[in-house]
Write a protein that binds this DNA or RNA. Structure first.
Length: 197
DNA sequence: CGGGAGATGGGCT
DNA sequence: GCCCATCTCCCGA
């Protein structure tokens, strides 16, 4: 098999550790329009306890219900009237935690990504942010709740995080919980949303 | 270049 | 009616 798909139990541990360990892994989607994939280069953890920035912090609602479902599924939500953000549910069923995928380094399907994002987009502006990567990968509302353990949509093992240079910071774009150092990224990687920092 | 304002619509008070 | 895990454009330097 070409891809080593990460199994459901991969997502059952501590969410902050999973966020860090997903750096270097490969997000793959065989869409009806074609294959796109990329290396995960930036993530953020959102926890159920002591984290007001987490969508699940105020209990289960229709919008965040997938976060309280089984780990290893996609949690996709619509934000700012225009964009989608893609997360992976973590920890355990009923807990309400997830890892936000904030940036990818494109690997397969670059032409399709450029087509989806409109003409004239340079390679380093296709997947360097949570909204942009969803557009480039063709991820939208219909992917909310989908399993990530099988074709056509999954995350596969990549470079071991221990072999990578990992940066840590506060999370981006939130007003509460800014003190939590739960953002992880590959240092210097040009596809990270803040120019590699 | 870096910073700020505006776009845009769904969810929640 | 306000908030929002964003992005792009348009300024000024």
């Amino acid at each position: 098999m070409k891809y080593q798909i990460l199994a459901q139990d991969y997502y059952q541990g501590h969410t902050v550790e999973i966020a860090r360990s997903l750096l270097g892994a490969r997000l793959v989607y065989f869409s009806p329009e074609g294959l796109t994939s990329g290396i995960i280069v930036e993530t953020e953890a959102y926890l159920s306890q002591d984290d007001p920035a987490c969508h699940a912090a105020r209990g289960k609602t229709k919008r965040n219900a997938v976060m309280f479902g089984p780990p290893g599924r996609a949690y996709v939500y619509f934000i700012y009237g225009s964009y989608y953000c893609f997360n992976v549910v973590t920890n355990g069923e009923g807990v309400g935690e997830a890892v936000l995928i904030r940036a990818l380094e494109p690997v397969e399907g670059l032409g399709l990504m450029q087509k989806r994002c409109g003409r004239g987009q340079k390679k380093n502006n296709l997947t360097s942010g949570p909204g942009k990567l969803c557009q480039a990968m063709g991820i939208c509302r219909e992917h909310n709740g989908m399993s990530l353990q099988e074709y056509p949509f999954f995350i596969a093992a990549g470079v071991a995080p221990d072999n990578l240079s990992v940066g840590v910071s506060g999370r981006i774009g939130i007003n509460q919980g800014q003190d939590k150092q739960w953002r992880f990224y590959l240092k210097g990687n040009p596809f990270v949303s803040r120019r590699g920092v």
